[in-house]
Amino acid sequence: MFDIVAFIPRAVVQGIPLLFGCVGETITEKSGNLNLGTPGIMYVGGICGVIGAFLYEQKAGAHMIGFLAIAIPILCCLIGSLLMGLIYCFLTVTLRANQNVTGLAMTTFGVGIGNFFGGSLIKLSGADVPSIALSKTHAFISATLPFAKKLGWFGKIFLSYGFLAYAAIAMAIIAAIMLKKTRAGLNLRAIGESPATADAAGISVIRYKYIVTCMGAMIAGLGGLYYVMDFASGVWSNDAFGDRGWLAIALVIFTIWRPNIAIFASILFGGLCILHMFIPTGTNLAVKELYKGIPYLVTIIVLIITSLRNKRENQPPGSLGLSYFREDR
């Protein structure tokens, strides 16, 4: 039997990293920056959190303070992703480099950083532990409401997650409101559609692009952090994060640049990613490998369906992928 009560929470925790990535990428794209470095940024966000948590656990030993155990990894994660965002902005906004190539280089770099430090952190810090398993930090970050377990299926489906999961959903809602209802959101939409127009209207295009892209990078980075610290129980293993960054970028297209839709879309995709565990295949291991391909196949189908829709409001931001130079005539 298909166990829906077990399935939904697992789909949600799979979907949360995608949601972070998708929201971050959406606001970034709204500013006209197509950041293909998001997969790399999510790696960096994750590993920076790991480094912070690792050093703190080493230092504090048994006397860990809850607040610091949560704040230090998050802060490290944000700083790491911010730096990545700044690299991207400097190259594409200030130096007007090609966004695609910059993004790909960032992904190579970011994944490299993640795997290198993930694999070498113990050696580098000279610590005396066999592997990185930040179970204490995990316990702090993934803490749920104490009464959640008593609420049966309701608690399981809605209340069984760490606070970062709710933060992701909150962030998606805030991003949606920001885009739709605020002056900054209006300015941002204008920049993405036509930076020259926004510039002529007195909006500082470069400043917006920097701020929003860096914010987007930080949000995406949190996705990486959530993955290691909450989903993966504080255990970093190389390449485990995989292609979630790319799926997040694909989700942006799927959700037609609307963070509120992203909440449901990412959970849906999370479900697809774990479907192979819920489809009974018996002892046939090979078929399971094929089922793992389902999310990619669905992404492709989604891309095709999206390209068939032609409504004006559902198109990507007009200047997406193009760098802006005021004096270009």
């Binding site: 209207a201 909006i203 409001e313």
Partner: peptide, 14 residues
């Protein structure tokens, strides 16, 4: 002007 925005949004832009 930004095509996908309304007249008002364009006017108050910036």
């Amino acid at each position: 002007l930004v095509d996908v925005l309304t007249a008002t949004e364009n006017i108050i832009l910036g």
